[in-house]
């Protein structure tokens, strides 16, 4: 379980376009979105889960309801849940806010799972999103799954991969 770093995840030994099987593909430059976006669009079509974005308004406000899923069942995945971090949250930390947000969703929506996305700002201020999820998990039967893919980690492709690893139940040690 676990990876040493992000480069490890990007190794594509079976890919015939990667000419250096022991190393990651060269990082594309520009024109691409970020790791958070990549992770979010991979997981967002899981319809009966709640997707909670922990960060300032940018990450959720610009992206929610952006992706469809041909589901005739739950519509929960479309909801843009966010902690909408403000200045005070950055100064004093917002793990408490996140914890309450998770609890609110569990209580009011009873989702099959909650994906909790960490974005650039909690990433920089060093909030322990994984610990908050772990703690929340103790009080509910709902899986609370941290997706640690802040935008500054890299490009969208990397986010896609990280989300895949999350689905496989592997936590990625990336920092």
């Amino acid at each position: 379980m676990g990876f040493a770093n992000t480069a490890e995840i990007l190794k594509e030994p079976a890919c015939n376009l990667n000419h250096q099987p022991d190393r990651a593909c060269e990082r594309p430059r520009g024109g691409e979105s970020c790791a958070f976006d990549g992770a979010f669009i991979v997981l967002n079509p899981i319809t009966d889960a709640a997707h909670l974005i922990h960060g300032p308004i940018a990450c959720c406000g610009n992206s929610y309801e952006g992706r469809g899923s041909l589901s005739s069942g739950s519509r929960l995945y479309r909801y843009g849940f966010t902690t909408d971090m403000t200045e005070m949250d950055i100064v004093y930390g917002s793990e408490g806010k996140l914890k309450e947000g998770i609890e609110y969703i569990v209580k009011r929506y009873e989702p099959s799972a909650i994906f909790v996305y960490s974005t650039c700002i909690p990433g920089i201020t060093g909030e322990d999103v994984e610990a908050v999820c772990k703690e929340a998990k103790k009080r509910t039967i709902v899986p609370v799954i941290p997706v640690i893919a802040p935008g500054f980690l890299g490009h969208k492709n990397l986010g896609n991969r990280l989300a895949g690893e999350v689905l496989l139940g592997r936590s990625c040690w990336i920092m």
Binding site: I57, A58, C60, G61, N62, T82, G101, Y104, R108
Partner: peptide
């Protein structure tokens, strides 16, 4: 009433951010 007591969580925000 419960919904309006909600403080820590925003659901479906009708706003975008400054740099936009």
């Amino acid at each position: 009433e419960l919904n309006f007591k909600r403080e820590t969580l925003v659901i479906n925000p009708p706003k975008a951010c400054q740099p936009l």
